[in-house]
């Protein structure tokens, strides 16, 4: 296993990806979901992975986060094997990774500021007063006022919940942020506002971002590069500007949203 490196040490190495998936395979019973995914993300790069329902996007993300263990292959974060890190090493690694879940996944029993400050209080050992100050500052970055801080997630709108979840993902200033369908369930205007916030936060932090989505407007806006996952493999990758002229029949069908073509609708 490669030794863990600090972000500074790591960024000193030229052309080294912050995240690298090599030949990752994952099955559930007889169903093989990932069939050898190869993917790398450079520090500061925003990569969007597109793909239809059931193509394995969420499973890929959960493997990259260490929430699932791949059957085969290797996943490296800053040179460290995600699947082999345990205890303190895993905690340190996760402190450098942020995650925005599709549903927000805010803790119902905690207030907005307690959600945002969760890692600060429970992992970094900040006092509740200091953690609340940091949480309110982070909430401001996602355009939420201090008046929201004391509310519970059930008391705010879906768009606000997404912004709180974004604040929670960036509060410890991670090097890599995963976004799982960040605009799902939002109206187009709120979705665009979330895209703007994602861009602003990712660029502000200098973090790398991996987003999975099938919202093409969102993909084109936030991506430096786009990759397409189909039947458990990356079948195309290129600059975001090229996605409409990829020359790949699968990508063309997906981005134009046609039912006819090589991809069968998931009905």
């Amino acid at each position: 296993m490669s030794p863990a490196l600090s972000a500074k040490e790591y960024y000193g190495l030229p052309n080294s990806p912050i995240l690298k998936l090599s030949s990752v395979e994952k099955s559930f019973g007889a169903k093989q979901v990932l069939r050898g995914v190869d993917l790398d993300v450079a520090p500061g790069q925003s990569l969007v992975v597109i793909g239809g329902s059931g193509s394995g996007k969420s499973v890929m993300l959960k493997n990259a986060l260490g929430l699932m263990t791949p059957d085969k292959g290797q996943i490296l974060f800053a040179g460290q094997d995600v699947t082999k890190a345990t205890g303190k090493a895993r905690e340190k690694m996760r402190a450098r990774i942020g995650m925005l879940f599709q549903s927000g996944a805010l803790f119902d029993s905690l207030t907005v500021w307690e959600n945002v400050a969760f890692r600060l209080i429970n992992s970094e050992g900040l006092s509740r007063r200091d953690a609340k100050e940091r949480a309110v500052e982070t909430l401001k970055k996602v355009r939420l006022g201090a008046d929201v801080a004391g509310l519970y997630p059930a008391e705010i709108s879906g768009g606000m919940q997404k912004r709180v979840a974004l604040a929670r993902a960036i509060t410890s200033e991670p090097d890599l942020i995963f976004f799982d369908e960040p605009t799902t369930g939002l109206d187009p205007i709120t979705a665009d506002a979330i895209n703007d916030l994602i861009l602003e936060m990712v660029r502000g932090l200098g973090a790398a971002a991996v987003t999975i989505t099938h919202d093409m407007a969102s993909a084109r806006k936030i991506a430096d590069e786009i990759a397409m996952l189909f039947e458990g493999k990356i079948i195309w990758r290129g600059p975001a500007a090229d996605v409409m002229q990829s020359g790949n029949a699968y990508v063309d069908q997906f981005v134009s949203g046609r039912a006819d073509g090589p991809i069968q609708p998931a009905l």
């Binding site: 986060l65 260490g66 895993r90 942020g98 879940f101 805010l106 803790f107 119902d108 429970n122």
Partner: peptide
């Protein structure tokens, strides 16, 4: 169970808890 299906338990793990 509700926390599991709404990904709150996954979120806990990503927050090092």
């Amino acid at each position: 169970g509700a926390m599991r299906v709404t990904e709150q338990i996954d979120a806990l793990e990503t927050l090092s808890a």
